[in-house]
Computed example of a mutant assay.
Amino acid sequence: MKQLPDTALLERMQAYNDKAAFDELYRRYWEQLYIAAYARLQQDADAKDCLQEVFVSLWNKRRELQIQGPLGPYLHVALKYRILNHLRSNHNYQKHLDLFAAVPPAVFSRADDRLVLAEIQQIIQQTINAMPEKMREIYILSRQEQLSVREMADQLGVSQQTVKNQVSTALKRLKDALARFK
């Protein structure tokens, strides 16, 4: 199979669920993608996780893909976006952990309180992840980067009113998601 071009291997995956074709594509691209992921993340486990997600997605979406030519450029772009999502997710998660770390331990001393805390953190992260891209970006700039409305508007090339509306909507979504913990 090594002599088959990427398009032929992809066709075999699509038409016949050919795992051997997938394995060959994996062997062709794994090392170069790993090097690219590691260069950006500087963590072996994170690089491998992102890479695994890219290849799992390739297999799961094999029937929908319309790729002409080599698969490399597609995989590199997929990896780039996976790494960005990973960095965004870890950044948000760490910021929320930092917020809760400021709470005295006695407040969350009971086991059920710690479970509630973990559930709240999960709801916050899921709510942020579910926001439309621009809203999520504005929320992060506002609450985590602590930029002013003017700074965000200038950086994103949108009006200040748009920024205010997006922040307000994002906060309302978080408030609604956390309403049961009042």
Rank of each mutant, 00 (worst) to 15 (best):
V167G: 06
D49V: 05
M1F: 08
V107E: 13
P104M: 05
P105F: 14
P5C: 12
I124E: 04
L99H: 10
P73I: 04
V163A: 02
A101M: 12
A118N: 12
I67W: 04
E151A: 15
N60E: 15
A118Q: 15
Y34T: 02
L147K: 14
L99G: 07
G69T: 02
V77C: 05
L33Q: 00
Q52V: 05
F108D: 04
D112A: 13
N165F: 08
Q161R: 10
I128V: 10
Q52L: 06
S57L: 11
C50N: 03
M131P: 00
L65N: 02
D18E: 07
N90L: 10
A101I: 05
Q94M: 11
D46M: 08
A118M: 10
T162K: 06
L87W: 03
S57F: 09
E133H: 09
D176G: 04
R40I: 08
Y38P: 01
D44L: 10
L174W: 01
V158C: 07
L97T: 08
S142A: 15
L115E: 15
R62H: 03
P132A: 06
Q146N: 15
K182H: 14
F181S: 00
A177V: 04
T127M: 02
E24V: 09
L25Q: 00
N90W: 04
Q66R: 14
A39L: 07
L87A: 06
L4E: 07
I128A: 00
F55Y: 04
S168M: 09
Q122S: 09
K134M: 15
L117N: 03
A78G: 01
R143A: 14
M131I: 04
L99K: 14
Q94A: 12
P104F: 06
E151S: 11
D23W: 03
P132R: 11
A130D: 14
A37V: 03
A111G: 04
A118C: 08
S148V: 07
K48N: 09
H91L: 14
T7Y: 12
V163R: 01
L171H: 11
